[in-house]
Every structure is written in C-alpha cells, then in structure tokens.
Simulated assay, not measured.
Amino acid sequence: MKGLLYRGARDIVFDDAPVPEPEDIRSAIVKITACGICGSDLHIYQGHGFSETNGYCVGHEAVGEVIEIGSAVSRFKSGDRVMISAAVGCGSCPSCMAGNVTQCETAGARCYGLGPKLQGVQAEYTMVPVADFGLAKIPDGVTEDQAVLLTDNLPTAWFGLKNADIKPGSTVAVVGCGPIGLMAVEGAFLMGAARVFAVDLVPERRQLAEEIGATAFDAAEARDQIAELTSGHMCDSVVECVGADAAIHLSMKLARNAGTVSCIGVNQTMDFKFPMALAFIKGLTFRTGTCSVPAQWPELVPLVQAGKLRPERTVTHHMPLSEGAEAYRMFDARENGAMKMILKP
C-alpha cells in the first residue's frame, strides 16, 4: 500500500505505508477515494509535529468506500461511500454515543495521522476504529469535495462560530482566511452577523473573503481600521483561525468590552503569554478547543445540501496522491494560490 509518510521537517514522501489491519471487531477498512491536506498538517510538515517519531502516515481528512467490516459493525456494509470523522472516540461512553468524541470519558479520543498509534488517511486505504461511530454515509446531494471538507474543516469552522456567541446583528471578525477562516466568514453571515471583518496577511485570501461579503484588512492595519468603522466599539465576536501567538493577541484586541474570542487555530505554545490584564479589563469570554466532528454533522449536512454553505469554494487544487509531497510544498509556500488541496489515490 502507498501513502504519504512524514520523514522529518518538510520531508513528506509517497512511499510504502503500513497495510491497515482491523483494530478489533468494531473496525472497518476503507479504500480512500479523496483526502485533504489540513492547515494543521502543516505543523507536522514544518517539523512541529505531535509525535517524537517519524515514518508514519499523515492526514486526517478523507472519504472513501468501505471494503471490509468487523463482525460488530452494524451501520455499514462493503460498498458504502463514507466520510471519515477526523475525531475518533471510544464509541461506547455517553459522550461518544452523543457524538461528542472529544469529550470521550474513557480518555480514548484520538485523531488520525498525528503519530504511529493511528496511521493517517492520506493513503490508499485506512483502518477506521469504532466504525459505527467514526463514519457517516456520504449523503445525497453532497459532492465528494464537500464530503472531504465535512470530515474536519467545515465542522471546525462551525464549532468556532458557535463558541463565539454570534447573534443576529453581530459584528464579527475572523482572523485568518485560510480554508477554515473563509468557511467561518460564510458561516458567520448565515448565523446572522450584520458585518464580518476578515484579517489576513495574504492579499489573495483577503480578496476571497471580500467575495463572500466580508470587509478585509491586512493584520497590520486591522485594529485601527476596525476601530474607525465601529466608532471604537470593536467586535462582538472574534474567531481566530491561525494558531499563532500574534493572531491570538490581535483577536483579543479586536473584541469589544464583554465580547467573545473563539480560538480554533492550532497553537502548540506551552508557555503562551496570555494578556490577562486585557481580558480582565474588557471582561472577555475566551474559548478554545478542538472540534467533535460528528456532533456538527446534523446541522451542517442539511445546510450544505441546501447550498446555504459552500465549503468547496476553498478548494484550489486536485492532485494525485503520488504528488502529495509537491502539494504540501505548494500549500506551505502558498504558491499559485494554493489553499485547499484535495488528493486522489
């Protein structure tokens, strides 16, 4: 079997990968038909991984076809077209059974492709543990690209928006206009935001945000421009989609008094200098965390089917999985407008 393996900083290779084997009778083997590169995959690519080892298969966004199921799998059969939740729980505790796998009560929450314990999905095949809870059939009216984005990116954006306390008429800022940020811009309007400000360093990404309806600024001018446009009141809600320390600090400055900051960018800083005085003086609500993908599907799938959300607009490239190393390089360099990369085995 072939897959994309992490060998070290900026060293992703298409090579022989471990053949997936069932974990137990609740597992399924899925033949991958499309997978995506997530912005958080770039942390691994850049050498800031979540495991001290290397040589493992990366990736956590994929859709495919079930080819084998364990005897305890009841909701799926061979031939089913499925999307794979990036978040994996034990499947048996009350939280998992409610879809909240990141709150797994057995400390069993996992994610594909962060290390050798659960190999990634940027491969020809993958093993899905607890398949009845970690898979969903691709619904009618949902394209393959949309299904890939429903495995992580769109649910993460939606999770960040819900954590931001957005109400009809709100003024919202989205910091970071990569795929998740652009989905957050679109979703903020759907939740009733009257104005959405988008902040990014890349002009092309700011333009994409403006095409969705946002008013976009470079990070260097965002605070002053938003202060002017809001008469100093700033934003009711801020959704941070970068993960960099500077982006989090800026997000807190963009929030109004008693506003809410929701951070969904992956930040690996263990000694982050939280501006407590600013948060205290403003009376900010600050939330962060990872998304439980299955918990978001009941709301998001109908919105995608109805065309109310169009996450596929962020897809810029379709490439063979065999060219995955080049896809990572392009995405990392933001070359040729590279943003959402879909790979096909």
Score class of each variant (00 low, 15 high):
220 A>P: 02
120 G>C: 14
9 A>Q: 13
289 G>P: 07
225 Q>P: 00
121 V>Q: 11
94 P>N: 05
286 F>Q: 09
61 E>L: 00
114 L>M: 07
235 C>H: 12
177 C>D: 06
25 I>G: 13
94 P>D: 10
277 A>E: 09
324 G>H: 03
284 L>R: 05
128 V>R: 07
240 E>L: 02
177 C>Y: 03
153 N>F: 02
19 V>S: 15
49 G>H: 04
216 A>V: 07
88 V>P: 03
74 S>A: 04
341 M>E: 09
14 F>H: 06
131 A>K: 09
71 S>T: 04
243 G>L: 12
90 C>P: 13
72 A>P: 01
148 V>E: 14
229 L>F: 01
124 E>A: 12
49 G>Q: 05
304 V>M: 13
54 N>K: 09
120 G>V: 12
182 L>F: 06
305 Q>S: 02
315 V>H: 13
91 G>F: 00
210 E>T: 05
190 L>C: 01
332 D>L: 12
276 M>L: 15
335 E>G: 06
217 F>Y: 15
329 R>F: 02
176 G>D: 11
71 S>Y: 00
51 S>I: 00
123 A>Q: 13
1 M>K: 11
66 V>Q: 01
148 V>W: 13
139 P>V: 15
181 G>H: 03
210 E>S: 04
323 E>Q: 10
6 Y>Q: 01
287 R>D: 13
337 G>Q: 08
163 N>G: 07
329 R>H: 01
74 S>I: 00
284 L>I: 14
196 V>D: 10
265 G>N: 02
88 V>L: 05
317 H>D: 15
275 P>N: 03
141 G>P: 09
266 V>Q: 14
104 C>W: 02
312 E>T: 09
56 Y>Q: 05
271 D>V: 14
96 C>L: 08
214 A>M: 04
71 S>E: 10
303 L>R: 11
170 S>F: 05
160 G>R: 01
